[in-house]
Simulated scan of single mutants.
Amino acid sequence: MSRRTTVLACLVMSTLLSIIAATPAAAATPRSEWDYVALGDSYSSGVGASGQTGLCLRSANGYPGLWNAANDPKSYRSVACGGATTTSLRSTQLWPLTRGTDLVTLTIGGNDVGFASTVITCTLSSDSKCAATVASAMQVLRTEMTAKLDGAYADIRREAPNARVVVLGYPILFDETAATCGIGGMSIAKRKSINSGAAELNELIAARATAAGFTFSDVTDEFAGHGICAATPWLNGLTVIPATNSFHPNAAGYRSGYLRALNAALN
């Protein structure tokens, strides 16, 4: 073997070893041996699905529970909690993470920009008031959320250095084609304002998750054609009992939307 060939072989081997070393441990082991921890807000705790329990409204019918049931990992723990923000995630949800954690999933950021209050305001107010409320939320997004997301993602990586981390986005809530939409009569203008805000939030989450070395899974394709007021919605509209289910995925949304997006990210 010539010196040139030997050098080339060494370079190829070095590159392969670097790739292997950089691959999360979860990728090298079967899912039945994974330790899985679900973090995040109500979209990860399972609000909107049946079987919610406790103050955090966790349900086995949210996407983490469905993934656990389908894959039977070695361990599974959900500490996701309805109403969670990046701050509460960092202070109350990181304790199950260890060097041995193989998979972490989360949705976070919606409550930091006032998701719930914004949608409720839009339901009850005028088109112009809705647009102004969304604009205010986007100002928070543009000035505060990069640092908040970066801090949360850094903490997760520090506590679970070997894990595959999948950050999932939020669906575009509303169908924009139906002439009328729900009990509150959400106008097309209001729906467009809310949807544009959700799209901008997803863009920032995707950018910061990628910068952290995490996998971002965009759920908008899965939910396309299934927004609130579509013919077959995968999201709850304004709900009276329980009110907390409002504007969250229903059973089809978690199974055919979020779970499908998570599986695609892991394949």
Score class of each variant (00 low, 15 high):
residue 117 S to G: 15
residue 121 T to K: 09
residue 162 N to S: 15
residue 112 D to S: 06
residue 119 V to D: 01
residue 154 A to M: 09
residue 128 S to Q: 12
residue 207 A to Y: 01
residue 206 A to T: 12
residue 194 I to P: 00
residue 129 K to N: 13
residue 176 E to I: 09
residue 118 T to Y: 00
residue 168 L to K: 07
residue 132 A to M: 08
residue 176 E to S: 14
residue 166 V to A: 06
residue 167 V to L: 05
residue 156 I to E: 04
residue 112 D to R: 00
residue 188 I to E: 11
residue 204 L to Q: 09
residue 142 R to W: 04
residue 212 A to S: 13
residue 112 D to Q: 05
residue 183 I to T: 13
residue 167 V to S: 10
residue 108 I to V: 13
residue 210 T to Q: 01
residue 135 A to D: 14
residue 127 D to V: 02
residue 200 E to G: 04
residue 212 A to L: 07
residue 116 A to H: 11
residue 132 A to W: 00
residue 118 T to S: 10
residue 115 F to V: 01
residue 156 I to H: 11
residue 173 L to M: 12
residue 112 D to T: 02
residue 117 S to T: 12
residue 116 A to R: 12
residue 209 A to P: 04
residue 209 A to W: 01
residue 107 T to N: 14
residue 195 N to T: 07
residue 177 T to R: 10
residue 175 D to G: 08
residue 203 E to P: 08
residue 174 F to C: 11
residue 214 F to S: 00
residue 114 G to K: 03
residue 180 T to F: 06
residue 218 D to R: 01
residue 151 G to C: 01
residue 190 K to N: 04
residue 138 M to C: 11
residue 123 T to G: 15
residue 185 G to V: 09
residue 125 S to L: 09
residue 138 M to H: 10
residue 137 A to S: 15
residue 213 G to D: 09
residue 213 G to W: 07
residue 151 G to L: 06
residue 193 S to H: 06
residue 170 Y to K: 01
residue 196 S to L: 03
residue 180 T to W: 01
residue 149 L to A: 09
residue 214 F to I: 05
residue 129 K to L: 12
residue 211 A to C: 05
residue 185 G to H: 03
residue 160 A to M: 11
residue 139 Q to T: 13
residue 220 T to D: 14
residue 120 I to E: 07
residue 213 G to C: 03
residue 159 E to A: 15
residue 199 A to Y: 09
residue 139 Q to G: 14
residue 151 G to R: 07
residue 138 M to D: 13
residue 131 A to N: 10
residue 131 A to I: 09
residue 194 I to V: 13
residue 194 I to M: 00
residue 188 I to N: 15
residue 117 S to P: 14
residue 205 I to F: 13
residue 208 R to P: 05
residue 203 E to I: 10
residue 126 S to E: 01
residue 211 A to F: 03
residue 179 A to C: 08
residue 189 A to H: 06
residue 144 E to Y: 12
residue 129 K to S: 15
residue 128 S to G: 05
residue 122 C to V: 01
residue 140 V to L: 08
residue 208 R to A: 08
residue 187 S to Y: 00
residue 176 E to C: 09
residue 196 S to Y: 02
residue 189 A to M: 11
residue 149 L to N: 10
residue 128 S to W: 00
residue 113 V to T: 04
residue 171 P to Y: 03
residue 113 V to I: 12
residue 162 N to M: 12
residue 109 G to F: 00
residue 135 A to P: 15
residue 116 A to D: 13
residue 133 T to H: 07
residue 211 A to T: 06
residue 177 T to S: 15
residue 152 A to D: 10
residue 111 N to M: 05
residue 124 L to R: 04
residue 176 E to F: 06
residue 164 R to W: 02
residue 202 N to A: 11
residue 218 D to F: 02
residue 110 G to D: 00
residue 155 D to H: 11
residue 133 T to I: 03
residue 154 A to K: 15
residue 119 V to K: 02
residue 200 E to Q: 14
residue 139 Q to F: 11
residue 177 T to F: 06
residue 116 A to F: 06
residue 214 F to A: 03
residue 215 T to E: 08
residue 171 P to V: 08
residue 168 L to C: 05
residue 149 L to W: 14
residue 136 S to T: 11
residue 202 N to R: 03
residue 209 A to E: 02
residue 113 V to Y: 02
residue 114 G to L: 03
residue 214 F to L: 07
residue 174 F to N: 03
residue 206 A to C: 07
residue 186 M to Q: 10
residue 144 E to H: 13
residue 114 G to C: 06
residue 122 C to I: 04
